[in-house]
């Protein structure tokens, strides 16, 4: 059985103006569908990557997975337990213990007034667990020194802080770690160190990652399975080889063509046209049809279902 089972997940945000403004300006309530009918599974001990541009809903899915946001429709099941609906507190607690998160900005996600030791043991201390020597052990595991436990976050560089975030995520011995753009704020040589560390820890502790990123090369390096999001919808899902060698959805093809690559010296290709549409008023039918070179009549009328195609799942009427 899959560790995580996400079914028909939808999240709608109310982005209306305040009541008085609506009355005065005669406006309707406005809703933003950040995630729309997304379904996928994450197998144990694998890395599942979500890629997409800003506003595609990848972070919203991550937050729903750890329970920072509730789903509007659909369900997130972790080992068969739906955290949003389960009423047995002991069961919820057991599953919660297995999930941790690493955030993008290591400068904003560590409390500047706490010592590193207290930051790292907090997930365990909050549940009344024994934390003797734990911070020192974890610091050494993520490549820092045990002596760093008494320092404050400002004494560390960006890459070192992200290592502290990883140590904190490991403290409660989780099964699943949601990594929301863990290396986007880091320089490339530091990114390499952090990615290598994450791979090593995955093997050592048998971890499962949901890896959220906008960087296709990083995703290709890390992921066992990749989901491509566009405007809150999953448009394609495949393994890295299938996705990068044979992208099926026109959006994936555009994304791969647009990504700058080493080795494409002085490349001259027509850049992609158009921009991501307004998520408050998404296009009818397939969300990508206004920018799609293959678009036909059906694309503007019916939203395509996910279907299997040569080892991938793709939501497109025209893909062959």
């Amino acid at each position: 059985m899959a560790l995580v089972d996400i079914r028909n997940l939808t999240r709608i945000f109310d982005v209306s103006k305040p009541w008085l403004n609506r009355v005065v300006e005669r406006r309707e309530k406005a809703y933003l569908t950040a995630v729309s009918d997304v379904s996928f599974e994450i197998a144990e001990r694998t890395v599942y990557a979500l890629v997409g541009e800003s506003g595609s809903g990848k972070s919203t899915i991550g937050k729903m997975l750890v329970g920072l946001l509730g789903p509007s429709k659909g369900a997130v099941e972790i080992r068969g337990t739906d955290l949003a609906r389960e009423t047995d507190a002991a069961k919820v607690d057991a599953v919660r213990r297995d999930i941790q998160m690493i955030f993008q900005d290591p400068f904003a996600s560590l409390n500047p007034r706490w010592r590193v030791r207290d930051i790292i043991v907090e997930p365990v201390a909050a549940r009344g667990g024994d934390t003797e020597g734990m911070a020192e052990r974890l610091l050494e595991q993520v490549g820092l020194s045990a002596r760093d436990a008494g320092k404050f976050p400002h004494e560390f560089s960006g890459g070192q802080r992200q290592r502290i975030c990883i140590a904190r995520a490991l403290a409660s011995e989780p099964k699943l770690i949601v990594c929301d753009e863990p290396t986007s704020a880091l320089d490339v040589s530091v990114q390499a160190q952090v990615l290598n560390l994450m791979s090593d820890l995955k093997d050592e502790f048998g971890l499962t990652y949901l890896f959220i990123s906008h960087d296709l090369t990083v995703v290709q390096h890390m992921a066992d399975r990749i989901g491509v999001l566009y405007l809150g919808r999953l448009v394609e899902e495949a393994g890295p080889d299938a996705l990068f060698d044979d992208p099926k959805h026109p959006y994936t093809q555009m994304l791969l063509a647009a990504a700058p690559q080493l080795g494409n010296f002085g490349r001259e290709v027509p850049p992609p046209t158009g921009e991501i549409p307004d998520p408050i008023n998404p296009p009818t039918g397939c969300a990508y049809h206004p920018r799609c070179p293959l678009a036909a009549d059906i694309c503007s009328q019916t939203r395509p279902e996910m279907r299997d195609l040569r080892g991938a799942r793709v939501a497109c009427h025209m893909a062959e």
Binding site: V188, S189, A192, L195, N196, S199, T217, H221, Q261, L262
Partner: peptide
């Protein structure tokens, strides 16, 4: 250090 398609899943070189 730069992840590359041609390098696959090998460990990245670290400085």
């Amino acid at each position: 250090s730069t992840p590359l398609a041609s390098r696959g899943k090998d460990r990245l070189h670290q400085i």
